[in-house]
Design a protein around this nucleic acid. Structure first.
Lengths: 215, 215
DNA sequence: GGTTTATCGATAAATTAATATCGATAAACC
DNA sequence: GGTTTATCGATATTAATTTATCGATAAACC
């Protein structure tokens, strides 16, 4: 549990460990080893141990970790006790899907409002969250002191919506559009580019199938 | 354009380059340099040049690449001319969102059918794609020779749906559930774990804000 | 035609991430 | 009580990825 920033890859794995730990029966009393977690999740055991050492120091030789404590330590580290408020721009199919994920709130993200251009949805609620006109983005973000925005608009509208969020004081953007966003250095962007994922998965699949054919 | 497998990170960036190139005006006649692409997308120019060298050899000193040729070379490399057929399991909000992305077909992915447990949607169509009972997964995948499956079911149903896909001959799974999937070595899994992304984005955001406060 | 310049492609260095090794520890066993 | 064993934590090694450097090339300029 040191001070220098944790690696991105470790950070991505922590919620995976957490979800696994939460499914262990008798998790209030059970213990688990890095070896056991690694076997269950198909990871290298040293990697698991190193990841866990970044958030917990409750591991004991021959025993492992108390599941209860480990869950607590990871949740503490990830800040799950105090979720980040966020707004979502673009209440289309994907936007609605994200708005309806009730479990985000328990994973550090609390979507408090949505914005859209569609008159049909503006003024109403989706999964309990109010939907406003996109012209209100800057104003509402500023008023609610929102620091995180989720972009699920069509590509053509992405930069404009992004700019409005930034003007409203948003400092981190979760970008589901396949578009590159131009932002000041002070703003973080995490791209969730589905098209990139397709490229990886279908290329790797085809490599495999080719290899097999060659045999 | 060599034979040893391309790096995953390069593969993820290729669609980003492609999307940028397609938005260049007069792209039929224009040329572009790696330097230019790097500046536009906020990347290192050597990285861009190296990435491009994996798919194209049409770069010329002092000039750069013909945009038209580069687009062609990337699309060729990613196999966009011949999209992979896939099925989707779980036609909830997220599933519907993916089914409605018409542009996937132009990015190497052709979703041909969906499966769900909900009687309301089974037998009908979503975005033109037929929806079948989940009991049909194995049978239909086998018959259509499907090799890629997309999992957008609730976590509890993930492993079972995955098993059915594997029994049906599926060799690559795009997993949108936050659950670890157990699959044979012959099956590829790409996890699109949104909870992992939240962890990265909110941690990095908080690190920044803390730093600023400390000043 | 010679010089300057922007760019490529290749190679080298640096950084980051994953994996292997090994001593220390503490429970379980004999 | 001593020995064996599973595990941790630390350090070392290896692999992957990014970034820097540099010579070669060809267009543009004088």
């Amino acid at each position: 549990m040191d001070t220098h920033p944790i690696s991105t890859q470790t950070l991505r794995r922590l919620p995976v460990y957490l979800s696994y730990l939460k499914h262990i029966p008798q998790r209030e009393t059970a213990t688990i080893s890095a070896t056991g977690i690694a076997a269950a999740l198909n990871l290298n055991e040293v990697q698991v141990r190193k990841d866990l050492s970044a958030v917990s120091s409750s591991g004991r030789p021959k025993i492992g970790y108390a599941v209860r404590d480990l869950i607590h330590d990871i949740e503490q580290f990830l800040g799950y006790n105090n979720a980040e408020d966020a707004v979502l721009v673009g209440a289309g199919n994907l936007g609605k899907a994200l708005l309806s994920y009730e479990s985000f709130k328990d994973h550090g993200l609390n979507i408090v409002a949505a914005f859209d251009v569609d008159r049909e949805v503006v003024g109403g609620k989706i999964s309990g969250k109010p939907v406003y006109e996109t012209s209100q983005i800057e104003h509402i973000c500023r008023r609610l002191r929102i620091r995180m925005g989720i972009l699920t608009v069509p590509s053509v509208a992405a930069q404009e919506a992004c700019d409005a969020l930034v003007r409203g004081g948003v400092r981190a953007i979760w970008n589901f559009t396949p578009t590159h966003l131009d932002v000041p250095d002070s703003v973080l962007v995490l791209n969730e580019n589905l098209v990139s994922s397709i490229a990886v998965l279908s290329k790797r699949l085809n490599e495999r199938l080719m290899e097999e054919e060659a045999l």
